[in-house]
Amino acid sequence: MLAKRIIPCLDICNGRTVKGTNFVNLRDAGDPVELGKLYSQQGADELVFLDITASFEGRKTFTELVERIASEISIPFTVGGGIHELCDVERLLKAGADKVSVNSAALKRPELIDEIALNFGSQVCVVAIDGKQTPDGWRCFLNGGRVPTDRMLFEWAHEANERGAGEILFTSMDHDGVKQGYANDALEKLSNELSIPVIASGGAGAKEHFRDAFLLGNADAALAASVFHFGEIPIPELKQYLRGLNIPIR
């Protein structure tokens, strides 16, 4: 049976993981490769590495990091951040990434999704959407939820699906960092309406939140950062708990 995926997300700045971690058993928790390897050994199903560096030099460092990840880690990984054009996608795939995640660049120029799907296949194209509830419904936001756009979540997700996205990574900016659970209503609507997998993001604070994202939100995968980085929810324990509820888990 196809398993629901658990995906740790690592934010990278100048080739190092940001947001501290408290893994005492790691020689260098700031090294994304070491941390990624640990997660892989613990049973993570995929990894996401998000480059939050703004500079040109930082991009080069990130590409070199992607090469190291590809040579040392034996599970699939997605990279995102700073992907504006097809040549960025090509550079990262060549470095060994399995998938790329596009966010604001796709909102600004939706044809980017078609181009990625056509040139490299839908399976490499993850469209990340940051959404926030507004009086007229779920709206897409840019820059980590600071800048509203004129696009609504559900119509944009449908358009991305039709243009050839392989997956939708939906982050609720209302739930992100609050640790009170994922936006299950919105997730359920996305999962039921789209023909591609949906990754839940934003809000994980307890094991039950993963359960709800899968059972209530019908998500195909759940992404989280701090609960894993700070060891609040060890991945083996989380997977054991979900298996116990008969949720298909690797």
Binding site: L2, A3, D45, E167, P197, D220, A221
Partner: peptide, 16 residues
């Protein structure tokens, strides 16, 4: 050929 809504194509992820 998807038969139910849950049958998403591509088949992507970990399966036994």
């Amino acid at each position: 050929q998807p038969e139910r809504h849950e049958d998403k194509v591509p088949h992507m992820g970990w399966n036994t």
